[in-house]
Amino acid sequence: MKKFVAMFFALAMIISIMAGCSSASSSGTNKKLVIGVDDQFAPMGFRDDKNELAGFDIDYARAAGEKMGYEVVFQPIDWNAKESELSSGRIDLIWNGYTITDKRKRQVLFTKPYLKNAQVVVTLEKANISKLDDLTGKNIGLQSSSSAEKALDGNPIKSKIKNVSKYKDNVIALSDLKIGRTDAVVIDEVVARYYMSKEKDTFKILDESLAPEEYGVGVKKGNEKLLNELQKALDEINKDGTAAKISKKWFGEDKVLK
């Protein structure tokens, strides 16, 4: 019996230690901030040629974490389950081109917007598609559970589209567009312009956008302490020029909202 009790308390202590090291904490010398990302969302967060995480949000998060005194740990997640990952405590933040919407505001806490974006329609440069009405009877691709899906659902053109294919990430969606499996892709403008810069004369963006939007960082409901701590850090790196430097690295200009 004594042996059983000793083993029970030893196990409880191990679990307690592991729990204390897995997420953001306001005490201790090795504070960690676990950030959930979509690692196929260039230029916000993606795998570079060395298979290492890179991008605007990756650099921006690291700068904020350093300001806060946290070790930043990036955790690639299934974007379909991002809110569940946050509410369960497996991650501390959702930070990777995360669009602020009214629905998401009911699920998570948001920082102030830090970047403007829009949902746009991308087609092949050679395609005979120049306006939204040209999507009538066409096959459209988009990332599942993304704001692109919401933007398309809210536009009258949705009822005229032949079919909507949903993909795990934008890379696959654009790949299918290139080989002709779809006629167009609804996607974040910042992502579209990144790929257009990498593949010249392959894609084009329609002049008509579906929906303007803004990016923010998602924090678990009830954790106002972390939200306020993070916002303070963001305000500081926005003010001291760090954010502008990161923006110019990835976008060629300062696009960060002050």
Score class of each variant (00 low, 15 high):
102 D>L: 11
250 W>T: 12
172 I>N: 07
121 V>H: 02
246 I>S: 11
209 S>Y: 13
112 K>C: 00
86 L>H: 05
89 G>M: 04
235 D>I: 11
161 I>C: 04
45 G>A: 15
28 G>L: 11
16 S>K: 04
88 S>C: 04
154 G>R: 04
26 S>L: 13
83 E>L: 10
246 I>W: 06
70 Y>C: 04
14 I>P: 03
50 K>W: 00
39 D>G: 00
159 S>Q: 12
165 S>I: 13
197 S>P: 02
220 K>Q: 12
228 N>I: 06
77 I>T: 10
177 L>H: 02
211 A>E: 15
225 K>L: 09
60 Y>M: 05
13 M>C: 15
87 S>M: 07
4 F>T: 05
194 Y>E: 07
177 L>Y: 00
118 A>P: 01
213 E>I: 05
21 C>I: 12
166 K>F: 10
96 N>A: 14
113 P>R: 04
135 L>T: 01
239 K>G: 03
44 M>H: 09
199 E>D: 15
97 G>D: 00
168 K>D: 12
11 L>I: 12
253 E>V: 06
69 G>M: 05
58 I>E: 06
116 K>D: 15
159 S>F: 08
170 N>K: 02
153 D>F: 11
123 T>D: 02
210 L>Q: 06
141 G>Y: 04
157 I>P: 00
121 V>E: 06
140 I>K: 02
189 E>M: 10
230 L>P: 01
181 R>M: 09
166 K>T: 14
37 V>N: 02
192 A>L: 10
258 K>P: 08
171 V>K: 14
80 N>K: 15
238 N>A: 06
50 K>A: 05
78 D>K: 12
91 I>Q: 01
109 L>T: 11
5 V>P: 00
9 F>M: 10
91 I>R: 05
242 T>M: 11
63 A>D: 03
214 E>P: 00
176 D>F: 10
236 E>N: 09
213 E>L: 10
207 D>M: 02
171 V>M: 09
224 E>H: 14
98 Y>K: 07
193 R>G: 02
167 Y>E: 08
238 N>E: 12
181 R>A: 14
241 G>T: 14
201 D>H: 14
66 E>M: 09
12 A>Y: 07
236 E>F: 09
219 V>F: 01
94 I>H: 03
152 L>H: 04
117 N>Q: 03
240 D>A: 12
212 P>I: 12
114 Y>A: 01
55 G>D: 00
129 I>S: 01
89 G>I: 01
243 A>I: 05
83 E>F: 12
94 I>C: 03
229 E>F: 06
31 K>S: 11
65 G>T: 08
24 A>T: 08
107 Q>M: 10
11 L>Y: 07
5 V>I: 15
184 A>M: 07
125 E>H: 13
115 L>D: 05
178 K>L: 11
97 G>C: 05
147 S>P: 02
6 A>R: 13
151 A>G: 03
52 E>T: 12
